[in-house]
Design a protein around this nucleic acid. Structure first.
Lengths: 141, 141
DNA sequence: ACCTCCTACTAAGGTAACCTGAATATAATG
DNA sequence: CATTATATTCAGGTTACCTTAGTAGGAGGT
């Protein structure tokens, strides 16, 4: 069940998120069309010194199996590698390849670009206020 | 490709949307556990005098086939009915049953409740500002 | 060492929410 | 009328998850 007639804030939040995130997604698609939105969860939660599948899944709030598939994809595409975890021979550490590092930097740049565009649109103060307002909503709901 | 380290506005928008919409979704689930989030698109875009499947799909930005499945579900659950369109025998009008009307009102009430809660949290002025800011973002992106 | 319990990961199969392509019925148009 | 367009439906596919059930390798107690 969802919204109703005029611009409800719930609907506005959704719409604003869609539009803004789309800019970032487009950059990703341009970088490598084989990378899908679902893969962003991996880049988002990766750790540069390597991370285990279970922890990555936990951070992304999904099952290790689901995360395993995403990692499989990105490994096949050359963005990640699985190396044995020296501290636990059951486990593997997921690490970035050089190509993976480059993709991550491209993603960061796209997000920073969106922030700059928002600062221009709303003014520095306006962006600060928006951030504060969203934080309050997140904390309260 | 998506976010990065600190609270980026993109991520904040998403998180705020998730939290706020969850309140509405919970109300829906309590009303009838068989109604799924995907069905909200139907309630959102319905028109009280009846609407054709194609138009409903168009408003919700999905294919008529996908929308058809959602309408099938809600018809089976007793919230909608398909009646022949008197003006075009190829088409059918999708209309609410009494039960559908009741569900819609419940949804509206849940959304209004969220708005009231936001007004309390942010103040009337704060909510007005947030709405204006989101509108600007939507218009610009 | 040995046995039990745990943990990381993999395999197999399922579901929800979409999609594309093709069929069918009816309309609209030259 | 014959042609082309429109409204819906039918069949089957894809993506992004999930659940259930292994398997291989550690860790601790005896």
């Amino acid at each position: 069940m969802a919204p109703t007639h005029p611009p409800h804030v719930v609907a506005q939040l959704y719409e604003a998120y869609l539009r803004v995130s789309n800019v970032v997604l487009e950059v990703g698609k341009t970088f490598d069309a084989r990378i899908r939105p679902a893969h962003s969860a991996v880049f988002f939660h990766m750790e540069h010194d390597g991370i285990r599948l279970g922890r990555l899944a936990e951070k992304a709030q999904m099952t290790p199996q689901a995360m395993g598939e995403l990692v499989d994809d990105l490994e096949e595409l050359g963005y990640l590698r699985r190396v044995p975890d020296p501290g636990d021979r059951r486990a593997k550490l997921i690490v970035f390849t050089d190509q993976g590092d480059k993709a991550l930097l491209t993603g960061y740049a796209a997000i920073d670009e969106v922030e700059r565009r928002l600062a221009t649109l709303l003014g520095e103060q306006g962006l600060t206020d928006l951030r504060a307002t969203l934080s309050r909503i997140i904390a309260d709901f």
